[in-house]
């Protein structure tokens, strides 16, 4: 080992520099976006007033607006954006497919059917969100159980089964919607995605679910790096491939279902944010996963604040904002990769 300095604190060649500065920047971005979200809203509240209310939760009407309306809403937006971005990054590694998003194996269609089913069966009970949560998990579980067995490419089967189930579930959803005209607009608004009227109780449920799925995910983080090398290679270096894939799918589905529970179906965050983070700090999951959460949370808080503040356009659901911002950005990235220049 001549010629190599024996210094264990030194960085190995190729090891990325400490990501402390990147952590700091993403956290600052999230805090700033949350502050922006707190200040903006239908009631005009100035920054000093916001600050006072944050520090004194029981100081009157402004404190109530801040603590019971804006805070839950912002935290919910952050959880939705972060959860979907993490789920998207996991699905992309799991399915070895850069176009994978959190909904790709049937979660969206399952959630849609769950929500509509709940609304049809018990329209007075406001069960759409729990219905969507359960529907999303059931759909993914269905697709996964079809992909098990001795076949050679279970992840491809999972993808195809998820697609077929999506078609089937969507057809049933459409039928139920046509039968149930009265709640058509409620369901349509829900499907577009939004974070209206958020309450702490709901945020807490989603936060606990996401914490659990985060704990499932942590011991699989570098496993995803190994899966990028191919299933056989991952197996060779000691990854219990089928078990890891099942745990990753479970974790991603819980993140997705918790996000859907809070906000309905919000598109594009889960697809775009991981790609953005990969461009900034590489595809290694020990950075991709946490930074995707922070970036997704920041993006979603900003999008939600923007959604509240487009008076000329009236009320715009946040799901449309994310699509309007995410779609063009993704096209831009793809064009750049092909060597084109638009800007």
């Amino acid at each position: 080992m001549t010629g190599l300095k024996r210094n264990d604190s030194a960085r190995l060649p190729g090891e990325r520099p400490k990501s402390a500065s990147a952590w700091f920047l993403w956290l600052v971005a999230l805090v700033v976006s949350m502050a922006l979200g707190l200040v903006h809203g239908s009631t005009v509240i100035t920054m000093p007033q916001v600050w006072h209310a944050v520090l004194h939760p029981a100081s009157g009407i402004i404190a109530v607006i801040i603590w019971e309306i804006r805070f839950p809403r912002i935290v919910a937006a952050a959880l939705v954006g972060g959860g979907l971005a993490v789920a998207g990054a996991v699905m992309q590694a799991l399915l070895q497919n850069p176009l994978a998003d959190p909904y790709i194996v049937g979660a969206s269609a399952g959630a849609g059917l769950g929500a509509i089913g709940a609304e049809t069966v018990a329209p007075q009970m406001a069960l759409m969100a729990p219905g969507a949560f359960i529907g999303a998990l059931i759909a993914v579980f269905f697709a996964w159980s079809l992909s098990r067995g001795r076949g050679r490419s279970p992840m491809l089967t999972l993808l195809l089964a998820g697609y077929a189930l999506s078609v089937l579930f969507s057809a049933v959803s459409t039928y139920l919607m046509l039968q149930n005209q009265t709640s058509l607009s409620t369901i349509f608004a829900w499907e577009l995605g939004g974070i209206h009227g958020m309450v702490w109780a709901k945020v807490r449920v989603a936060a606990v679910i996401m914490a659990v799925s985060g704990l499932i995910l942590v011991p699989q983080i570098k496993t995803m790096n190994a899966l990028l090398l191919g299933e056989d290679v991952a197996h060779g270096v000691g990854v219990p491939v089928r078990l890891s894939q099942a745990l990753l799918l479970l974790s991603a589905s819980l993140f997705t279902a918790a996000a859907v529970y809070l906000s309905g179906l919000i598109g594009f965050v889960g697809l775009v944010i991981p790609h953005l983070v990969r461009r900034l700090s590489g595809p290694e999951h020990e950075r991709l996963i946490p930074f995707s959460f922070l970036a997704g949370a920041t993006f979603m808080v900003l999008a939600d604040t923007l959604a509240e503040h487009l008076p000329p356009l009236g009320i715009v659901p946040v799901g449309l904002i994310t699509a309007f911002l995410g779609g063009p950005y993704f096209l831009y990235v793809l064009a750049r990769q092909q060597g084109r220049r638009f800007f």
Binding site: P13, K222, T223, N225, L229, G230, A234, V237, G238
Partner: peptide
């Protein structure tokens, strides 16, 4: 393996590090 075609641009260091993953504990992932 004869050849691998990772989906994204993994660093050489990350690829070699994968040889250790069978010995990782919970915290080694973070």
């Amino acid at each position: 393996p004869q050849a691998i075609g990772p989906l994204f641009d993994l660093k050489v260091h990350t690829v070699v590090e994968m040889g250790r993953i069978g010995r990782y504990r919970f915290w080694d992932h973070l």
